[in-house]
């Protein structure tokens, strides 16, 4: 065999390998999705919709109301973002615009390390430190509340939020800063009135990514939110226990009889969660698309 045909053969082998790997990855994702549908769809047929989207989740008594779980997830996700957004943007502004070089060199890897803390560790930290603190300072019956979950989730969303927001700030052209400074704006005015607004679609993307991560988070949330499936519709709900979709699936999947309505209901929750995450990602993608089309960031 001469060299050129050997090269051609190895070329072919590599290409085939990459192709198989690529297609099988997509194939597995599809299979998981089909499995989710196959196991979840029955619940939408077996249980009337007013029960399925009712306010009570007592599977042992055939109440499959997912509303408290959906609202529980949304409540802690949105609260987490409300907490994380100002902190994240402020941190990104500090790292990118204000910090001296040496501080930036230290902070950036530290933020990346934060992203790597396992969620069970954060859950443990939340249970043993944050929850008692909340119970004593706020005087509520238990420290395992939606707010505790939101705090932990905010903390988990922060590293991504900071680094994506930082990239967005970094991509704001120098010419905008120059124009602002040359008009007699101070450094702060330039940051808040020019740089951050010009980076807003990138910051929005950061928020969406953070939300996507937060809403799917399970372990830490299960450990600190108390897991009571009550409707979070009263004013004090933020400081009461709450149960999320993820925690429900994780807690109940182990003891459920395969093929039962309850089993299918848990997969149904999976479908709902998937849809919500999908919508969030879609919103993030369209924000990015809009930014490109407008040419807002050049």
């Amino acid at each position: 065999m001469n060299t050129s045909s050997r090269i051609r053969l190895s070329e072919f082998a590599v290409e085939a390998l990459v192709r198989v790997a690529g297609f099988s990855t997509i194939g597995f994702v599809l299979l998981i999705f089909l499995f989710l549908l196959r196991e979840g769809i029955p619940v939408f047929l077996q249980v009337p919709l007013d029960n399925l989207f009712g306010t009570r989740w007592y599977p042992t008594f055939d109440f499959f109301g997912t509303l408290p779980l959906i609202l529980g997830s949304l409540l802690i996700t949105f609260s987490a973002i409300v907490i994380a957004l100002p902190l994240g943007v402020a941190a990104a502004v500090f790292v990118r615009e204000v910090a001296p070089n040496w501080a930036r060199e230290i902070l950036k890897p530290m933020i990346e390390v934060l992203a790597g803390i396992p969620s069970v560790v954060l859950g443990f930290f939340g249970m043993s430190l944050v929850a008692p603190l909340i119970r004593t300072t706020l005087g509520v019956p238990t420290g395992l509340t939606a707010f505790t979950g939101a705090l932990i989730l905010a903390y988990m969303a922060l590293p991504t939020l900071i680094s994506v927001a930082e990239d967005a700030l970094d991509s704001v052209p120098k010419s905008y800063r120059d124009a602002s400074l040359a008009m007699g704006a101070t450094q702060w005015q330039t940051i808040w009135r020019v740089v951050v607004p010009a980076a807003r679609s990138g910051i929005l993307t950061a928020v969406m990514l953070g939300m996507g991560r937060a809403i799917g988070e399970t372990m830490a949330v299960m450990m600190v939110t108390g897991n009571a499936a009550r409707m979070p519709t009263t004013l004090d709900s933020l400081f009461r226990p709450v149960r999320t979709m993820t925690a429900t699936v994780a807690a109940e999947m182990g003891e459920v009889a395969q093929g039962s309505t309850h089993y299918h209901a848990l997969f149904g929750i999976g479908i709902i969660l998937f849809l919500i995450t999908f919508l969030i990602n879609l919103a993030a993608a369209s924000a990015i698309f809009q930014k490109r089309r407008r040419g807002g960031l050049r």
């Binding site: 124009a179 007699g184 020019v194």
Partner: peptide, 25 residues
């Protein structure tokens, strides 16, 4: 004041661009 080589208006409306300086002041 300074006008740069490449036009560099902010990615905002015409009004916001011109009102920027007075607002800052």
């Amino acid at each position: 004041g300074m006008v740069f080589q490449r036009p560099n208006p902010f990615p905002q409306s015409v009004f916001e661009n011109v009102a920027f300086g007075p607002r800052v002041l």
